[in-house]
């Protein structure tokens, strides 16, 4: 194993999202990982693209956006270091439903979704571990969406 491969395993296991991950899982997961970075304004992906990755943010800020007719692009969430971008790789049809843009210079670990799905399918213990970590992200997004839909700070709230 090269030094670089070991580094990425360390980075993955030290990221808040994978805090406390058992070593064998860390090895399996980081086999699907690579280091990436984005310049301010650069897009990680666009709505409609195949969601074949997710991103562990190590530094910077990613804005998740939806284009609204007549209103331009609306940011509905920002994601910062220690957080994760993307759950769509986990669920068919594996397609992004929004754009993700680096709002600042951003460093991340990009995870190959197809690679990790294969490993989760082959080893359900790993699959459950990954699910347990993604489920809270989904629930938080759902709760945030509830609050946004209720428009709690609006005139009628």
């Amino acid at each position: 194993m090269s030094g670089a491969a070991k580094d990425i395993e360390e980075i993955v296991r030290e990221h808040a999202f994978f805090e406390g991950l058992l070593e064998p899982f860390g090895k399996l997961i980081s086999g699907c990982a690579k280091n990436v970075h984005f310049q301010p304004g650069e897009y990680l992906f666009h709505e409609g693209d195949a969601a074949d990755q997710f991103y562990l943010i190590r530094q910077g800020c990613v804005a998740l956006e939806i284009k609204a007719p007549g209103r331009g692009a609306i940011t509905f969430q920002t994601v910062r270091e220690d957080e994760v971008v993307g759950v769509e790789w986990l669920i068919p049809p594996y397609r992004w439903s929004y754009d993700a843009r680096a709002a600042e210079f951003t460093r991340a670990i990009a995870m190959d979704g197809a690679c990790l799905r294969r490993k989760c399918e082959a080893d359900h213990d790993l699959g459950y571990e990954v699910m347990k970590r993604f489920m809270p992200v989904l629930i938080q997004r759902l709760q945030a969406a509830q609050m946004q839909i209720l428009d709690v700070y609006g005139e009628q709230a």
Binding site: E65, G72, A73, I74, T75, F76, R101, M147, Y153
Partner: peptide
Amino acid sequence: DHAAVSDW
């Protein structure tokens, strides 16, 4: 809760 990309 939400922002136009251009002003935030």
